[in-house]
Amino acid sequence: MRRARGGWELPISEDRLGRLTKEMTEAHHDTLPAMRADAASLAERLRALGPARRGGRPVSEDRAGEDRTAGRPAAPTAADRVTAENRPGGSGPADAGRRRFLLGAGSLGAALLLTGCTSAGTDEKGASPQGEPPEVLPPRAAADTVMYTAHLRFVALSAALENQAVGAYGSILAAAGADRFGAVPPAVSTFVTMAMAHHIDHAKAWNAALTDAGKPAVTDVPLSNQRAITTALDRVTSVDDAAKLALQLEDQAAQTYLFAGYNGKSAAGIETAATIAPVEAMHVSILRFILGQDPVPEAFLPEDLAATPSLLTV
């Protein structure tokens, strides 16, 4: 039997459609028994761990004895993002539920390691945007104790970049408030406020990954270029100068996360980088538009301005 609807005919019968849907559902159920069985309990565990992570407390108090190796999925990052995505305009609860499901699957153990998504060809230290191994350890840190190792250096770098952006936008707002720039266009004021709020949330996401791995959150800006940025901020005397400096930081962040997105070691880490990079790229576009430049200058996001972990001083 065929059903016409608005000139279009359902090419199979309702019974057949029902049977196929049922078969498809059953097939998935057959494929996923272990993961499905554990999903609910894992979601509960993640919910239970949520408040501690949001407070930035090291998870060692809550999860003593668990493996906190670098390759383990950075579950809190995604879980925190679930909260963010439940805001208006964000992803819905269905997606959050599915993400929890995946996070649950990730902890099942050796048989279902989420870290298995890492490409076999990816070096432990990652590869530079040009395909060469980056200088992973900063000169000072190499001589002392390195706080963040392997792929966590990229996570720490990312958190530091977010803090740097938050600080820069804060300085710009303070300078504008002190009338250092003269009249500030309303679009610039709202943009700076919004972008700063975004970077605060991004920093939380990256830091959640660090604390979940048993590492301290990056709460300041341990970057070798911070002095130069601070000096540049002090010298800013116009809205245009401020926007150009912000653009530099946004370009760097977007391109760094692009690199982190394809060199990540955990599903949650890759997803965090992949979902933050487009937002930084949007910041770039609006800043470019305000500055009178083409908002989308290239067909592919480049990587030449990406930061490398060598910028990190801890």
Binding site: E85, A187, T190
Partner: peptide, 21 residues
């Protein structure tokens, strides 16, 4: 730029993270 309405700075980037749902 000075004439751009405030919404250009806020309504153009509606999400903190790129949605994938």
């Amino acid at each position: 730029a000075p004439r751009l309405p405030a919404a250009i700075g806020s309504a153009t980037i509606p999400e903190v993270f790129q949605p994938i749902a």
